[in-house]
Design a protein around this nucleic acid. Structure first.
Length: 559
RNA sequence: UGUCGUGUCGUCCAAUGGCAGGACAGCGCCCUUUGGAGGCGUUAAUCUAGGUUCGAAUCCUGGCACGACAGCCA
């Protein structure tokens, strides 16, 4: 029945339901974010799951804002969420909905439960309600207002809506069972009084439905077949079912799966909001943030994130994915699609002593060895060059293959050079390195076949552009950022070196004119993306998306 | 000491009573004008004690561990 081979326990349920003709052959899912923050990679998992199931089973997918709490929700979040869902391929067509558009219908349903004697207005305040709810092991006490007549409840509820009572003075509660072992069933609150403007409804309402009451109705009205949510709602499913059962309306099936956790990453809106509010990062779209906006700005492709979500699977057990898995996804994508370029991040000047002073020549370079159609380009070469400081060692450690006094390396696409002399200033600091070049060894020449131990990247000093490069590292130093010392929180595990700004990096001409959003591989270094906010015309700022795998770093680490 | 849920390589996911497999990570080798691309190989797991069965990761019983729940948040 499904269009793909992909399978998980939810797709199995959908397949079974289809076989049993449970929903007249329909499959209809939804992604129901609350607009109280930016979407993060965990939401991407949910979007890919819900949208993917609709796509694979030829069903429909809705985007619905669960905007039932005006105190926390904002239009800015609505806008960003719409953009992010679209970017991830979540195709909701014209089905963009808001729970707040259903408030009138929800109110009518509530009146119905009041008339059935299944809901009552309660005057207990929040404290009193907590005290009478009981504990995990003891049942609660019934509210003294539990047995008001239907007429009185109806009257009171209408007056709640009209605004006759202050915040918190009264609630509407479902009359279920104060002795239930499931605390969610101990007469849960359906409506609370909140005198606050709603981002879409303005001051039209001062009673707002709670999640449990609202969510099933939203799903039911939209004729959702499979209401997929995360594990923490498992204990709420009996309530979800109770409401829809009592209402006698169309009843979708709630299915729970384990939310995504990532190593070295926090994925709770509360914590992400804190990072933003306390300015530990530049904003929700800071390239170090695990938000969709952050990854996008960093340079992650939507394909890589979608692919990541496909590979991590869907199950019910709590799990933490190694962030290396995400990095693998973006490397895999960019390896196939990113143009190769040469950029020198920490420049060291090389002078080719036997190269003619005024001469310039061009070297032919391959744009992408993984993709012939990417073509070739010419890069300039002359007597003075820059190489990376990492590619020269005055005293080479064991197994070091690159440039050091007396050794040879190949300049990629250029000549083989030999280090002849190290030039230092008065303080003993190396200012430049003098080399000779072998004129018979340019790429493409017969003499170029000579083996040397290493090939390094370089940029012509005379033609180099100067750009800013931002090296990002993980935001937290601990695999589990919440693993903090006694009395401290996740902020104590922030990585002080998560952002390193390099000015005056030397790049080949094509990079100096790169446009916002363009992605490149800097050969032997990593993948980079032109920042869409910090870059200026002719002055690109490059974000490091991810490093290349680095075998040398491991060898070096062992010593 | 309640209810619900979950226990499989280091990590994540499969195996639906019949040879425990894949991906990432790790390790090793090969190749390389990216030490970083690519290729090959390899290490490594069924929480536990019983039971049912010719046969159990899978079914049953008990234990143990972990997670969620006592917001008028979602």
């Amino acid at each position: 029945m499904a269009l793909t081979e992909k399978s998980d326990f939810i797709r199995e349920i959908v397949t079974e339901d289809l076989a049993a003709n449970k929903y007249q052959g329909r499959v209809h899912t939804r992604f129901p974010p609350e607009p109280n923050g930016y979407l993060h990679i965990g939401h991407a998992k949910s979007i890919c799951l819900n949208h993917g199931i609709a796509r694979d089973f030829k069903g429909k997918f809705n985007l619905r804002f669960d905007d039932t709490n005006p105190a926390k929700e904002e239009q800015e979040y609505v806008d960003s969420i719409i953009e992010d869902v679209k970017w991830l391929g979540g195709n909701f067509e014209d089905r963009l909905f808001y729970a707040s558009d259903y408030f009138e219908k929800m109110y009518e349903h509530a009146v119905l439960l009041i008339k059935k004697g299944k809901a009552y207005v309660c005057d207990l305040n929040a404290d009193e309600m907590r005290q009478t709810r009981g504990t995990l092991t003891e049942s609660g006490k019934e509210s003294p207002y539990r047995n008001r007549s239907a007429e009185e409840n109806f009257d009171l509820f209408e007056r709640m809506r009209k605004g006759e009572f202050p915040n918190g003075a009264k609630t509407l509660r479902a009359k279920i069972n104060m002795a239930s072992p499931n605390i969610n069933l101990r007469d849960p609150v359906m409506y609370r009084i909140v005198h606050e403007d709603h981002h879409r409804q303005g001051n039209k309402w001062c009673v707002y439905p709670t999640y449990d009451w609202a969510h099933g109705i939203e799903d039911s009205l939209e004729m959702i077949t499979h209401s997929i949510c995360t594990l923490e709602f498992e204990n709420h499913r009996p309530l979800y079912d109770w409401y829809l059962e009592e209402l006698g309306v169309y009843h979708p099936k709630q299915i729970e799966f384990a939310r995504l956790n990532l190593t070295y990453t926090v994925l709770s809106k509360r914590k992400l909001l804190k990072l933003v509010a306390e300015k530990h990062v530049s904003g929700w779209d800071d390239p170090r943030m695990p938000t969709i906006a952050g990854y996008r700005r960093r340079g992650y492709t939507s394909d890589s994130i979608i692919n990541f979500c496909d590979t991590i699977g869907v199950a019910k057990r709590d799990s933490t994915i190694d962030v290396a898995q995400l990095e693998f996804s973006i490397r895999e994508d960019l390896n196939k699609h990113a143009r190769r370029t040469m950029a020198v991040l920490n420049p060291l000047k090389i002078v080719l002593t036997n190269y003619p002073d005024g001469q310039t020549e061009e070297c032919e370079a391959v744009n992408n060895p993984e993709d012939e159609t990417a073509g070739k380009r010419m890069i300039p070469f002359c007597k003075e060059l820059f190489i990376d400081q990492d590619d020269f060692r005055e005293v080479p450690p064991p197994k070091y293959f690159r440039l050091s006094p007396g050794t040879e390396v190949r300049l990629k696409y250029g000549y083989i050079i030999k280090c002849e002399k190290v030039v230092k200033d008065g303080d003993g600091k190396i200012i430049e390195v003098h080399c000779s070049y072998d004129p018979d060894t340019k790429s493409g020449m017969a003499g170029a076949n000579r083996k040397v131990k290493s090939t390094i990247h370089w940029v012509s000093a005379r033609h180099a552009g100067n750009v800013e490069v931002r090296l990002y590292d993980r935001l937290f130093v601990k695999e589990n950022p919440d693993d903090a010392e006694e009395g401290k929180d996740f902020l104590s595990n922030l990585n002080p070196n998560s952002l390193q700004i390099l000015k005056q990096c030397k790049v080949e001409p094509v990079l100096a004119n790169a446009k916002a959003g363009e992605r490149f591989q800097f050969e032997r270094t990593g993948y980079f993306c032109v920042d869409s906010i910090e870059s200026k015309e002719g002055a690109p700022v490059f974000n490091r998306i991810v490093t290349l795998r680095d075998a040398w770093a491991k060898i070096e680490q062992k010593h």
